[in-house]
Amino acid sequence: MSDASYNLDHLTELEAESIYVLREVAAQFDRPAILFSGGKDSIVVTHLAAKAFAPGRIPMPLVHIDTGHNFPETLEFRDNLVERLGARLIVGSVQATIDSGKVQEETGANASRNRLQTTTLIDTIEEHQFDACIGGARRDEEKARAKERFFSHRDDFSQWDPKNQRPELWNLFNGKHAPGEHFRVFPLNNWTELDVWNYILRENIALPSLYYAHDRVCIRRAGQILAHSEHLNLRADETPEMMHVRFRTLGDLTITGAFESDADTLEKIIDEVAATRITERGGRMDDKRSDSAMEDRKKEGYF
């Protein structure tokens, strides 16, 4: 039987795979959570979770690690989404971690709270005893992620050991673990940036306005455009100016590069992403620190 009506486009196939992964988490773990950053990937994961468990509610909380340096647009979007879905929200605060003296704020012009998030994330996981944390990371994002599993085992110290991962065959996921250990789960592993955008268009998924071209006061630094804000330490030679920009990823205000763009609709964004010859994380200062910056942070327990 090879009826053409049984052929699926690749977005439908990716969606089916991700929904399968999300349901597997709900079935295999006692205390799962979705790590929600407010970026497009975690928004897509949340959308997929809503589809996976419809007409029921998403049977796990959304966990947001708030660095205190978030774009206000991201927080507003988060609160609206949580209300619309009737989901539970848990916020872990990097400011609280700093105030407790567990970590020290970075100083200097390139200071960011990116790395500090890891401590807050691990504390939040331990406090709520989460045994599975679902993230929106994709294998195509960065070379250290190309070998990531769907179910990625973390030891008692939340560490990732890339040389000792469980083999993952077919669609049989082994989520068994000892108390204190947990899993990071990546339902979007097989998606690319373009897949995510095409899916957002197809499903008509709402996004924070930051992804669309808008007027914003920015500065130029080391070939990058950064949003001007109270959290950014200006250097003597830097002058804030009004630009027409949008963001390709949403991290902290202090590290997420904007770029000049006129793409103010999803269709224009997709055309722009397809034509772009720089990787998505190419605009992230945090990855530029060294060739294995991502691998090192992942081992420590980063997202």
Binding site: H10, R139, D140, K143, A144, A146, K147, P162, K163, Q165, N189, N190, T192, L194, D195, D291, S292, E295
Partner: peptide, 25 residues
């Protein structure tokens, strides 16, 4: 992909790669 592999010039784990043409992903 991984640091150990770059140092040793070997591939130690399955790595997944993605590409698309106008006809297929």
């Amino acid at each position: 992909g991984l640091k150990a592999e770059r140092e040793q010039g070997i591939t130690i784990d399955v790595a997944y790669r993605y590409f698309a043409t106008p006809k297929r992903k």
